[in-house]
């Protein structure tokens, strides 16, 4: 049985600079796998590389989804294979309403050619329900996505899309930064919901704060592009107490 997501000895260059230097990682359905590490350790690079962002060059190693390599696929092909990335800093999309984006994205998943006409009319209800779960009003469906959104609203809108688009692998890049404590609780409950529905979650986070609300099954610590430590939820607590360097040395 192949793993849902398997990262093998991944080396990645960004702008000619080696950022990931041999990362291994597996993710199973229904698992929350936290990836922690200080700034610049390669956490976001890992997320972007899995999603296929141009400029993130795999020079060695492989990324497999259900046993198939995805490193030669376009970003949209990876998305349609079930990879979803919740962005740390999503760009504003002037004029593009959240509902238009969701309609286009769902239509693509249903193999419908038109991007503007909802092939599944239930999608609007689903979107409004998702928004409600993340604590955003239904009017956000008609807002231009991420235009004038606060840091917290951005995070909530990203997580809401994960609920609507029904991916297999959910990568959340620092979904708790910029959120107040209520926001962190809400995001944690969404992560649990996604996990309980069988999705594999790669949870990238700088601080252990979020992990107090959602217990990870595994924790990987990245330092300077390498796996510095790996363990269960206790590792997150240790980092909280001692800091990254001490944990890595141990």
């Amino acid at each position: 049985m192949p793993e849902l997501l398997e990262i093998r000895d991944l080396h990645v260059d960004v702008e000619g600079k080696r950022v990931l230097k041999g990362v291994n990682l597996t993710l199973r359905p229904g698992e929350v796998h936290a990836v922690m590490g200080p700034n610049g350790s390669g956490k976001s690079t890992l997320a972007y590389t899995i999603a296929g962002r141009p400029g993130y060059e795999v020079v060695e190693g492989d990324i497999l989804v259900e046993g198939e390599s995805i490193v030669d696929l376009e970003p949209e092909e990876r998305a349609l294979k079930g990879i979803f990335l919740g962005f740390q800093e999503p760009p504003p999309l002037p004029g593009v309403r959240l509902s238009s984006l969701v309609v286009a994205a769902v239509n693509k998943r249903m193999g419908v050619e038109s991007l503007s006409r909802a092939a599944d009319p239930r999608i609007f209800r689903k979107l409004v329900e998702a928004l409600q779960k993340v604590g955003l009003g239904p009017e956000y469906a008609q807002r231009e996505l991420h235009v004038g959104f606060s840091g917290g609203e951005k995070k909530r809108a990203e997580v809401a899309q994960a609920l609507v688009l029904d991916p297999k692998i959910v990568i959340l890049d620092e979904p708790d930064s910029g959120l107040d404590i209520d926001g962190v609780r809400i995001v944690a409950s969404i992560i649990k919901e996604l996990r309980d529905s069988g999705k594999g979650i790669l949870l990238i986070t700088h601080y252990a704060r979020l992990l107090q609300y959602v217990k990870p099954d595994s924790v990987t610590v990245l330092l300077d592009g390498r796996v510095a430590a790996r363990g269960g939820p206790e590792l997150a607590e240790e980092i909280e107490k001692k800091g990254y360097t001490a944990v890595a040395r141990a």
Partner: peptide, 13 residues
């Protein structure tokens, strides 16, 4: 580029 990648990540060409 970030806008294009964002939308591609949602499944659009």
């Amino acid at each position: 580029e970030d806008q294009l990648f964002y939308l591609q990540q949602r499944g659009l060409t």
